[in-house]
Amino acid sequence: MSVLERVKAIVGKQIGRDPASLDDNSDLAEAGYESLDVIETVFAIEEEFGIDIPFNANVGDSVQLRTVGDIVTVVEDALAKRQSR
């Protein structure tokens, strides 16, 4: 399964939506994300892919997670970093 499909499955489960209704451009807030959904998703993604995501809501230049595609980019970056080590 592609990174996008695995991310869609996690996001869909978080808000009780069919993953098939989501794509790269799906906006998390518009899809129904509330304050705690983002950090729960970060945790689920870290567990799923075995990576660390440098997300801190208090730091302006930390990773921005606005859309499903943003999450996919962060995951692919982290996986690439892991392989290059």
Partner: peptide
């Protein structure tokens, strides 16, 4: 840490360069 609200350097309340608690 899992709540993603901790600062990694120091606490700067009400400052534009804030980084968390």
């Amino acid at each position: 840490e899992a709540l993603r609200v901790l600062s990694a350097d120091t606490c700067r309340p009400f400052s534009r360069n804030r980084s968390g608690l």
